[in-house]
Computed example of a mutant assay.
Amino acid sequence: MEWNQLQGNWKQVKGKIKEKWGDLTDDDLTKIEGNREQFEGALQSRYGKSKEAVRKDVDEWLKTMH
């Protein structure tokens, strides 16, 4: 799945995001509202990973989405 597809279905995808990254709150996901930069920033903040590591994790996760 491409990020722009995910962004268009943000409300439906939020549950899958919480399954993968449970430390993100509903408030986080509401504020992010499909913005990839904000999403990756929130992941960096919650999980203490580098920008590159977060980008790789998100890219790998997107490949599993159908």
Rank of each mutant, 00 (worst) to 15 (best):
D57W: 14
Q12S: 13
T64F: 10
E40F: 03
Y47R: 01
D27Y: 11
E60R: 10
V13L: 00
V13P: 00
L62E: 07
K18Q: 14
N35R: 10
F39H: 08
N35T: 10
Q44F: 04
V54L: 06
A53I: 01
D28K: 00
E60A: 09
L29G: 11
G48F: 03
D28E: 00
E40D: 08
M1F: 11
T64P: 09
E37R: 03
W10T: 01
T64Y: 10
T64H: 12
R36V: 14
K56N: 14
L29R: 11
Q5L: 00
N4R: 10
D28L: 00
A42M: 04
I17H: 06
S50F: 05
E2K: 15
K51L: 02
T64C: 05
A53L: 01
E52D: 14
H66L: 11
K31D: 13
T25H: 08
Y47M: 03
D59A: 12
N9P: 12
G34I: 00
D23R: 15
E2I: 14
V58T: 02
R55W: 02
T30H: 12
K56T: 15
R36C: 09
K18A: 09
G22I: 06
Q38A: 08
R46K: 15
D23E: 13
Q12W: 08
T25R: 05
R36T: 08
G8D: 11
S45C: 02
D26M: 09
R55P: 01
D28V: 00
K11V: 13
N4G: 07
Q5R: 01
K16A: 15
R36A: 10
H66M: 09
T30R: 14
D26N: 15
D26P: 09
G34P: 01
G48Q: 07
H66R: 12
K51S: 02
N9W: 14
Q5T: 01
D59V: 04
R46I: 04
V54M: 04
E2D: 15
A42V: 04
Q12N: 13
M1D: 12
A53F: 01
Y47N: 02
F39Y: 07
A53N: 02
V54S: 05
Q5A: 02
V54W: 03
N35E: 14
K51A: 03
L29I: 09
T25M: 05
K18H: 09
E40I: 05
K20N: 07
D59Y: 03
D28M: 00
G34F: 02
E19L: 14
G34M: 02
T64M: 12
L6M: 14
T25S: 15
M65G: 03
S45L: 04
E2A: 15
Q5F: 00
G34Y: 01
K11S: 15
W61N: 03
L24E: 06
N4Q: 12
G22F: 07
S50L: 05
K63F: 07
E37N: 08
G15A: 03
D59M: 04
I32G: 11
E37H: 03
S45Y: 08
D23H: 13
D23K: 15
N35C: 08
F39E: 10
G8L: 10
G22W: 04
K11T: 15
F39T: 07
E19P: 10
K18V: 11
N4S: 12
A42F: 02
G34Q: 01
Q38D: 09
W10Y: 06
E60K: 08
G48K: 07
Y47C: 01
R46V: 10
Q44P: 05
N4D: 13
